[in-house]
């Protein structure tokens, strides 16, 4: 780690033409990529305990809401980071979009873990500069967007990964917490894919607008129960997942 003051992060490199980096999308989106996401349930553990999520149908309802709120907001930030918006400005925008301090802490912790994995996989000056400017972790979607750009992926792909993570985390957790049939949960995820594609399109469009109009053009969709559940979950003495 450098001890020099960080220069402002340079813009992320232009995406590789023609989707040449498609395999990088698979590596970055893979749940086995060592970025720490497996330890988090995306609010599902609290929703299961509160009784809101109890079977594949209620899981689907939960995931649809999470995708359209926290997922879309993360996707907009990620796509904007890939598109070249200043990551520190996006980091501040992520704070303003995250009312729960427990969720802000989780996002920064996941950002720190992803940063470590991403710098090993796709070293580059943009990631180095953000790591130096936010040593305790930048918000995860911002790191994700920079990592995607460094790997040669376009903003749209960064949005897809953020959205995919926003539902696979709760889905995988629900299988463990409720002993749900993994085939039924795979079917839930498959049914969410049209919503996911539409949200990725919306996030990428917003990121393009934000290049001219600033971060206010990015989605800020929020979900009151996710905030409530996160604060409640953070107070439990015993839990299976970190969030």
């Amino acid at each position: 780690m450098s001890t020099h003051p960080a220069p402002p992060p340079p813009p992320a490199p232009a995406p590789a033409p023609g989707g040449a980096a498609r395999a990088a999308l698979l590596v970055l989106a893979d749940g086995r990529f060592p970025a720490g996401g497996h330890a988090h349930s995306g609010g599902a553990e609290a929703a299961v305990r509160a009784g809101g999520v109890h079977d594949p149908d209620s899981l689907e309802h939960f995931c649809r809401g999470r995708l359209r709120t926290a997922g879309l907001t993360a996707a907009g930030l990620a796509a904007a980071a890939t598109a070249g918006l200043d990551p520190l400005v996006l980091d501040e925008a992520a704070d303003a979009r995250t009312a729960s301090p427990a969720l802000r802490a989780t996002s920064r912790k996941l950002g720190r873990q992803l940063m470590r994995a991403a710098r090993a996989a796709w070293p580059g000056p943009a990631l180095d500069a953000l790591a130096a400017a936010r040593p305790r972790g930048a918000h995860q979607p911002v790191v994700l967007g920079l990592a995607a750009g460094t790997a040669g992926l376009p903003p749209h792909d960064a949005a897809h990964i953020a959205l995919y993570e926003s539902v696979t985390g709760p889905a995988t957790a629900a299988v463990r917490l409720l002993s749900l049939d993994p085939f039924a949960v795979a079917a839930v995820l498959a049914r969410l894919t049209p919503d996911l594609d539409r949200a990725a399109e919306a996030a990428a469009t917003a990121a393009r607008a934000a290049l001219h109009d600033g971060v206010d053009a990015l989605p800020a969709a929020s979900a009151p129960l996710l905030d409530l559940a996160a604060e409640r979950h953070a107070r439990w003495k015993v839990r299976l997942f970190a969030s």
């Binding site: 609010g43 929703a47 509160a50 809101g52 999520v53 209620s58 309802h61 939960f62 995931c63 649809r64 809401g65 999470r66 995708l67 359209r68 709120t69 926290a70 501040e92 925008a93 704070d95 303003a96 979009r97 009312a99 919503d195 971060v215 206010d216 989605p219 800020a220 969709a221 929020s222 979900a223 009151p224 129960l225 996710l226």
Partner: peptide, 25 residues
């Protein structure tokens, strides 16, 4: 001049999942 809070809430048919366990329960 700096963002402090930015939140959007959407409800009704155009907002899938709005009454579900992640949003309003």
């Amino acid at each position: 001049g700096r963002p402090l809070l930015d939140q959007e809430l959407s409800f009704g048919q155009a907002a899938p999942g709005w009454d579900g366990p992640a949003v309003l329960g």
